[in-house]
């Protein structure tokens, strides 16, 4: 076609594109597929198919340690994601509703620091700081985990919120001010309602990131503060039980559900 010629480079037309793409998808999804399939295995071996069964879901569900870890994970994720979304929302407003100034880029970098610093560095530094705090205050509750999770969730909440704010038509806020809305009223009546999809996206991302975290949690947690991921990691050190597959499958289902939900929420708003 005549219009085809104007395109300088069409990646789809390159030889081997299909093959490479297929290979990538296999690498990504084959292990997950195997994990999910063996969660329904009737046998005890995680590599030997012995027929369909829900027994591992049942035993995981009945396992009190799993229950406790799951509740802790959900609590941690919801609290951290809430705080992170509020903080990230404020940071996003402060960094978008301003004339660009020297140092703004530096602030972006500071806010997004947890994305760039290796997680293990954050984990070790938090371990050292919190162990001091634990000695000084005598408090060793879940507060440290909440703090740590909030901190590394902030950039994940910040990015979608900032994107939403940047794409928002600024004349809308101007129109509100023109129609006698004070800055607070304009925020409440115009900016905030239009920001909701960004906040929801930020919250969901933060929630999933917190739910998933192993490294920082492993370093920061006090004794007996297992979350689901750290519990699973602990289990792997012993005889591997397909219970892990079952838990992971539930995790996966939850993530897929959240992402799908988010997709529909976002589409409706636009």
């Amino acid at each position: 076609m005549a219009t085809e010629r104007r395109k300088p480079f069409a990646i789809k037309a390159q030889p081997g594109f299909g093959l490479v793409a297929m290979l990538c998808f296999f690498m990504l999804y084959l292990p997950i597929a195997i994990l999910v399939v063996y969660a329904f295995n009737a046998g005890e071996n995680i590599a030997l198919w012995e027929g369909f069964s829900l027994r591992w879901f049942q035993s995981a569900w009945a396992n009190e340690t799993v229950q406790e870890a799951a509740m802790r994970s959900l609590f941690l994720a919801s609290v951290s994601a809430t705080i992170a979304t509020i903080v990230a929302g404020m940071a996003a407003i402060a960094t978008t509703r301003t004339a660009p100034y020297r140092g703004l880029t530096f602030k972006y970098a500071m806010i997004n620091q947890p994305l760039m610093v290796p997680e293990i560095v954050t984990a070790v530094s938090l371990l050292i700081v919190f162990s001091r705090f634990k000695v000084w205050t005598g408090y060793s509750g879940i507060g440290y985990l909440v703090l740590a999770h909030t901190a590394f969730c902030i950039p994940f909440a910040y990015l979608p919120i900032r994107a939403r704010l940047e794409n928002m038509d600024l004349t809308l806020e101007r129109a509100a001010a023109d129609l006698y809305a004070t800055p607070w009223q304009a925020f409440k009546r115009v900016t905030l309602p239009l920001l909701v999809p960004g906040l929801v996206a930020g919250y969901m991302l933060a929630f999933v990131i917190s739910l998933d975290d192993v490294v920082i949690t492993e370093f920061v947690k006090s004794g007996g503060q297992e979350t689901l991921p750290t519990y699973m990691l602990g289990q792997l050190r012993r005889a591997v039980s397909p219970e892990i597959n079952a838990i992971a499958t539930v995790f996966l289902a939850l993530s897929v559900l959240l992402v799908t939900l988010f997709y529909f929420v976002n589409r409706k708003k636009n």
Binding site: T171, R174, A177, D178, L179
Partner: peptide, 14 residues
Amino acid sequence: PYKRPVNTVFQNYA
């Protein structure tokens, strides 16, 4: 702007 008895019709309507 919110203290002025002046209203605006914006180019993109807003």
